[in-house]
Each structure stands twice: as C-alpha cells, then as structure tokens.
C-alpha cells in the first residue's frame, strides 16, 4: 500500500493522493492511476508468462518473447503504423493480430519436444526481426519515433481497457494456480510428470496457448518490455522456493510492482522527459537479481 501511495504521488510534481484537489485530482485519478494499473497488470502478466514458458520449455532462459510472439507483434504494430499513420488504434490492432499470427505459426511445432519448439521459436524470432528491420527501413522518417517508443515499451496509454487488463491478470493467475501442482511435476521432466499422472500433452498445449495469449495481451497493451518476464520468476524462486503455488502469485504481484516502480522512475528521473521503461526494468532488476543469486549461492 505504501508503494502504491508513493508511485501514485510521484511524478513531475509530487501530489499527495490523500489531499488531491482540482487539477491535481484529475492528474492523479485520470492519468497516473490508469497508467499505474496498466504497469501493474502488464508486469504481472509478463512475469506469469515467463514462469510458464520456463517450465514448459524446461529452460530457465525462456521468457515471454522467446517464441517470437513479440517479434510478430512488433511487425504487426509497425505494419499498422505504415498503413494508417494517424490512427492510434491501428497500431494496437496490428500488434494483437501480429502476436496471434506468431502464436499460430509456433503452434504448428507444438507437438515436437520442448527443445525443438524452443529452436523453432528462436528461428521464428529471427525471421520476425528481419521482417521488422525491413518494415522500419521502409517506414517514413516521421513514423520512426512512434515505432521505437512502442518497441521499447510504452505504458502511457493502453488500447485494451484497464479493467480488461486487470481481469486478464486475475484470470491468468487463477489459471496458473489451478495448474500449479501439474507445473511442479513438469519440473521433474515430461516422463516423470507423466508417470505421476499428468497428461503432459494436454498440459503442454494448454500452457502454450495460455502463455502465448497472455504475452499477446501484454504486448498489445504496452509494447515490448524485456527483462520482467525473464527475471521476476527467478527472483521469486530465489525468495519463495520452487513450488508454483508460491512462485505464480509472487510473480504476478512482483512483476507488477517491478514494472510500476520502473515506470515511476522512468517518468521522474529526467522529468518532464521520459525514459523507455524497458531500460529501467533492466537497471533496477539486474543488480537485485545478481545480489540474490550471490546470496543464495553463498
């Protein structure tokens, strides 16, 4: 609560949330609060998707964008920007459509084992990166600023309504909690999980769809924000242990808080200008993660 109060009040100018009147109240409740809620839900969704992808692919380096969904979303967003430069909505629609094109392509490989799905995803990510570079080369100069701002993460507004984002956060966490014991068993590898009664094919398919859908929502709402989905689940494992009934809620909340903090810093450090939030997530998260890693190892 203290953190909410601090990040809500912080900005170009400090506003006490308990004593905001007139224009201050408008800034607080109509600009800062929605932005804070976007940051919280997007951060939580990215961290949940990251935790799922890591277990699904049996790889601690996996993160929400590992299968190329962010790449295809970026291609969609920039394509939307090229087609209708004046429309704010078209970029988001393009991102959402692009994310789903990426997901459907990856699904064609979902019957293969985790390492081959990962390989297919990495190759697809390279393919989308190449298409994105091509589109950026063709994009008129005045559109480049918007394209880069989107690609580095933009929490200033979301074309997905904030209540829907929060609903997605709650639904994703509930889904994760229902699957938490099966996810724990999947940590033992597919055969061991299967021997313990998990229908691994069904679980993998559900996880792949859920994690991809959650990534698509997060990318559409806020562009690509790296690091949160990779590191927050590991941070939470270092603090709360490995079992998913602890890791998933901790990631959903921890990812949200990290992105909220990073966004607040990005708005205030060089105010009135703003830093890209993805840069801040890395600057805050890396030292904390490395400190915990060293503490745990020693």
């Amino acid at each position: 609560m203290l953190m909410f109060w601090l990040v809500l009040g912080a900005g170009e100018q400090w506003i006490n949330p308990f004593d905001a009147r007139g224009q201050d109240a408008t800034i607080l409740w109509e600009l800062r609060l929605p932005r804070l809620l976007i940051a919280f839900s997007v951060g939580g969704l990215l961290a949940l998707a990251g935790a799922w992808f890591q277990v699904l692919l049996g790889n601690p380096l996996a993160e929400p964008y590992v299968l190329g969904v962010a790449g295809s979303a970026s291609v969609g967003a920039v394509a939307g920007l090229m087609l209708m430069p004046e429309s704010a909505w078209v970029m988001s629609i393009g991102a959402f459509a692009g994310a789903w094109v990426g997901i459907v392509v990856v699904m064609a490989f979902s019957h293969l084992g985790p390492s081959r799905v990962l390989l297919a995803g990495v190759v697809l990510a390279a393919f989308w990166a190449a298409i994105l570079a091509l589109l950026l080369a063709l994009l008129p100069e005045h559109g480049l600023g918007r394209a880069f701002a989107w690609m580095m993460g933009d929490l200033s507004h979301s074309d997905i309504p904030v209540p829907l984002l929060i609903l997605a956060w709650v639904a994703a966490l509930a889904c994760g909690m229902l699957l938490s014991r099966s996810l724990d068993m999947l940590l033992l590898g597919e055969r061991h999980a299967s021997a313990l009664g998990v229908d691994v094919h069904v679980l993998r398919r559900r996880l792949l769809w859920s994690a991809s859908a959650v990534t698509a929502i997060a990318v559409t709402a806020a562009g690509t924000i790296g690091f949160v989905g990779l590191v927050v689940p590991h941070l939470m494992r270092l603090i709360f242990g490995t079992l998913h009934r602890f890791v998933l809620p901790a990631s959903a909340v921890g990812g949200g808080l990290l992105l909220m903090l990073a966004d607040t810093a990005s708005r205030t450090v060089i105010a009135p200008a703003e830093l890209p939030v993805g840069v801040l997530t890395a600057i805050i998260g890396v030292p904390v993660f490395l400190y915990l890693l060293l503490r745990r190892t020693s």
Partner: peptide, 23 residues
C-alpha cells in the same frame, strides 16, 4: 486414463532435471 495408470504403475528412469532448484 493417465491418472489410473499413475495409481497402478510407478516408473523410475532418468534422473530428473535440476535447473529450477527443487529440493
């Protein structure tokens, strides 16, 4: 079903992976 098989048959094969810090 997979659950029925798990109640009837216990399998022990490869050692499980260790990446995620399970105790």
């Amino acid at each position: 079903s997979r659950a029925e098989l798990a109640r009837a048959i216990a399998w022990q094969g490869d050692l499980p992976p260790t990446e995620f810090g399970l105790t």
